[in-house]
Amino acid sequence: MNRIKIMKEPSEKKEIPASAGRIAVQVDDLTVAYNYKPVLWDIDLEIPEGVLMAIVGPNGAGKSTLIKSILGILKPIAGSVSIYGKPYDQQRKLVAYVPQKGSVDWDFPTTALDVVMMGTYGSLGWIKRPGQKEKKAALEALEKVGMLPFKSRQISQLSGGQQQRIFLARALVQDASIYFMDEPFQGVDATTEIAIINILKELRKSGKTVIVVHHDLQTVPEYFDWVTFLNVKKIATGPVKDIFNDDNLTKTYGINYKVSIQE
């Protein structure tokens, strides 16, 4: 029996977005396979606009795969995805992405500012170079994540937490409506974790939709208002306060879980 201790949110009332609101991301019958082994199986998922959602599940449950196939990085063998009712290709300017920190070579010869500037490349399109406007946006994003003093640092000289902040800043520059983040709290220090979650909450407040692949079950109720349980199949999705319970955790992780709320 695993026990999860959760600190009860102090007083801040959570605003649960009206489920009658628009659907930001709609996933229909999505099946994805690696080497013809299904990793995601017949996923149906509706993510309402304006939620801060965690995707949780055990290792190998297909959490990153789900994000990657929504973003068109992986090709599904069945099913479809739509962003505000249209395919991803037509809507990609509405979407920003923070990949796993470990997915890139941090010894690449480039600076923090340079990496953040890459966030503007999508709206620039082919060949056009970033100019003053793009640089200004990048500097603002760096400021927001508290990395302005490090803007000319080579990226290998940053700590893990700082690298993650740079990735977040790069997504912020995209100025999107929907943010996808793949384990943004992986290997970061406590200060960075708080800084990142505050930025995410701020994004939600301004009406953005934020979808985060998350590992730490203990912090789910504190950080998020919406949650999706995933283990190859979708187990459950909905508001944290309604569905974050023993039953769903057990179904997802296959071990008995007990959620105990500490007052």
Binding site: D29, T31, A33, Y36, K37, P38, W41, D42, I77, A78
Partner: peptide, 8 residues
């Protein structure tokens, strides 16, 4: 795999 997907 498509068949499996469909059955599921």
């Amino acid at each position: 795999v498509s068949l499996l997907t469909f059955l599921l």
